[in-house]
Design a protein around this nucleic acid. Structure first.
Lengths: 364, 364
DNA sequence: CTCAGCCATTGGATCGATCAAAACGACCAT
DNA sequence: ATGGTCGTTTTGATCGATCCAATGGCTGAG
């Protein structure tokens, strides 16, 4: 017994024993209040208590009120394991976190929003360490069999991702953060409209007078990378400008600096980058060339990582609304669980351009 | 009577119905395999199957083997809800994620390590959106009552944190990431030895020939901030140097740059900062003074945020071993659950100094 | 050859909730 | 008075695994 002397403030809730001469219920060990205790207190059967909680419209208002009072007074909480044993629904949603790699973006905010929205609907997130491919599917199977997880949230979706099809075949609700970037999309998803982000950057740069706007992206083939490039292209074409200045680099500052140099030589006054890391490469390249980022050449990054605001000049960047993505994903998932057969729903969220010092007016 | 047809070795797993004339077991709906089905197949009672899984030493080797084979062939998984209803242990560990604020460090890696270690021991992490103070305690109560969570992991611990005491009073196992920084510590925790980190930075700088090493920290009063300052102080004293050059700033690049200027004027050749943001302030201040970080003045940051490696010159920084923290925390928690009354255990993990270009030899 | 002693194994009750169906009382029509 | 209907509440069974107490078979001692 840790602490025999508790503060005992106004003590709004009391032990299961009850005070009205009711002998402690048969299984009244621990601190748990069972439905039977509530029923006895309210003078009804356990089934009536169950109805009060799940189908209140069946009860006479007077009885309902009495049961509700008993529930409140005793601080009763339905036991999830017991309920889930009977109903075969756990109100648990599985989410596999990957080992944070270089490419994976930070998921803290996404996870928080996800969890918060789930909580509000009476669901909770069950975390598991995701392996890769087959190992992850095995984990799904385990979670389904042991915990009876009701649904899954996927992230870090890739091209030929097997997970969606696997879940879909078994009729298990799920939602993905990220498109599949494939012809046969399966299931609901939420994603950030990268193209809209780069297009917004182009629009803003054009409004600032820039006419020679380059793009520094990743090698073709990555879904989101190509998407971001496409936004830049469309932005230029919409204004009658030629999308000619384009370079590619892997996610590395040095490589990016080398890759972007030809663009600078060609006279671009602004560069839109597919990531903040690539944008940093632009900073370095401009610096090497004896210029100053933000003055001679405007730069816009992508992701609005913590780096962006710390740089000098501060880096303008396209921010992904991770909180919104989380909320929206959970909304889709809950809707899918409510109506499993409804047509798939896909949501593209617009990112926000965060304007900072690196985005300036065209000088020449 | 149980099983007229037992062997069937090659059958790699089949639907619960079985095909060999065995009428589908009573509750053989869905795709779930129950203990009763396994028992029938193995020709034993359900209790024996239970023993095979939980107390195998009670079974005759031959029986054990037979049961195990049946389990494998049928792909049986014990149903957590049913087990947990009976045993009152959920094998679930609660973790409240806070809304990612500016100060909160990124928890992805910590979470992954935590989850992975928990998985290996048969536990899973149950996420919930943590509110503040009272709201979080209410969430604890709910998780305990409804899900029968076995333990909690805390992070973002603060000075007068009420959570530890609350959990301790109720005898609920928990482990914290972070000390309480208070006289009466409660329970197990894991933390990163910030002092050791800054001391390592000082040692390395001194080895490079630096004699005037300043410290740029946060205003006194924050536990970890004071800790990091202390490491710097001890590092200098250990070498007979005076810890005289010290400045304070809030977590902001501009403010940091202003705060560190006097130190530079006073002639320090190196600065140890309490965070990467503060270190960036040093970069800016050195730049403003017409110098180059890494050449004239060495700088070491703290946390090894993604920024560090991207800067130019790359910022040396003290990296927190978040993966180790997660693993260690789970280890402590599992030990506590196994032996609730054991004396509290506290683990201080040494951070690693990541040497990069900003840490150079003393020029003067 | 019998019986205590010991082991592996079995049968039945149990955890706390929900489901299905029966029981109940009140009310109205016949 | 009898029967039917309706709305409300209760009874009994059930989910799947574990706990407890009891059974069965086997061995070795008397």
């Amino acid at each position: 017994m840790p602490s025999p002397s508790v503060p005992t403030p106004p003590a709004p809730r009391q032990g299961p024993g009850g005070e009205e001469g009711t002998p402690p219920a048969p299984g009244a060990a621990k601190g748990s209040v069972t439905m039977a205790m509530v029923a006895r207190r309210a003078g009804v059967s356990t089934q009536t208590v169950s109805n009060a909680l799940n189908t209140p419209e069946l009860l006479r208002p007077e009885t309902l009120e009495r049961v509700r009072r008993a529930v409140d007074e005793m601080g009763y909480r339905p036991h999830r394991a017991a309920r889930s044993l009977r109903t075969r629904a756990s109100r648990l949603i599985g989410f596999g976190i990957e080992p944070a790699g270089p490419g994976n973006m930070v998921l803290d905010r996404f996870l928080h929003a996800l969890s918060e929205t789930a909580d509000a609907a009476g669901y909770r997130l069950l975390l598991f360490a995701a392996g890769s491919g087959q190992r992850e599917l095995a984990a799904y199977e385990e979670l389904l069999g042991e915990h009876g997880v009701d649904a899954f949230v996927l992230s870090n979706t890739a091209h030929g991702d097997p997970r969606q099809a696997w879940l879909d075949e078994r009729g298990i609700p799920f939602v993905a953060f990220g498109r599949m970037w494939s012809e046969h999309e399966v299931g609901d998803w939420v994603d950030v409209d990268g193209a809209a982000g780069t297009k917004a950057a182009v629009d803003r740069l054009a409004a600032e007078g820039h006419r020679h706007i380059g793009f520094l992206g990743w090698p073709a083939g990555s879904g989101s990378g190509d998407d971001r490039a496409e936004g830049w292209r469309r932005g230029l074409l919409a204004r009658g400008l030629e999308p000619e200045h384009r370079a590619e680099s892997v996610e590395d500052v040095g490589a990016a600096a080398r890759a972007v140099a030809p663009l600078l030589d060609a006279g671009v006054t602004a560069v839109v980058a597919a990531s903040d890391t690539l944008a940093l490469g632009c900073y370095r390249a401009v610096g090497n060339a004896g210029g100053t980022p933000g003055r001679e050449v405007s730069v816009v990054g992508f992701d609005d990582s913590p780096v962006a605001s710390l740089l000098s000049p501060a880096l303008a960047s396209v921010a992904q609304p991770l909180g919104d993505v989380g909320r929206e994903a959970m909304r889709l998932l809950l809707a899918r669980m409510a109506e499993p057969a409804k047509p798939p729903e896909r949501v593209l969220l617009p990112p926000a351009l965060v304007v900072r010092a690196s985005l300036g007016a065209a000088s020449g």
